[in-house]
Amino acid sequence: MTTQILIAGFGGQGVLFAGKLLAYKGMYDGKELSWLPSYGPEMRGGTANCSVIISDTPVGSPIVDKPDVLMVMNLPSLDKYENAVNAGGKIFVDSSFIERKVERSDVDAYYVPATKMAAEAGVPTLANMILLGKLLKETKVLDFEGLEGVFKKIVSAKRADLIDANLKALEIGYNYKD
């Protein structure tokens, strides 16, 4: 089983970190994985994306150009990648910023007003975690259990307050019913 995931949005929305969290979780769960960011002079204020592959077998190319799972946090990313998603794939949309619906009928689309929900929950910078929570729920690519342990390994003790906020955002997304 190999799942190819593409996460895209504006620079600053936390799309690279959302991918990194998947990568760390995959590693601690004993999966094979790769994480590859877009990089370039256009990133700040422009679009950013990362390719994450989670697999039971060694990963070949780390480049995801035909995702099974697409998570988009802005309209340009949905416009750019919607048609690339494999048939039967899943698309996760931050509907706070993206007003249109997914046009494909051969994929499952999930709409989460993540940015709005994040602001209401008092974690305005964590829309990425809310959308990622929904992604984990619907794709089951990795277990939701054990995320706290992962955060404890990757966040320094000085910033421990961030862990609770991130977990809260992930749970809000995980429990959201669209």
Partner: peptide, 10 residues
């Protein structure tokens, strides 16, 4: 190359 430098793996 840029990909090898930028990608993360265990």
């Amino acid at each position: 190359d840029g990909t090898m430098g930028q990608m993360m793996e265990p």
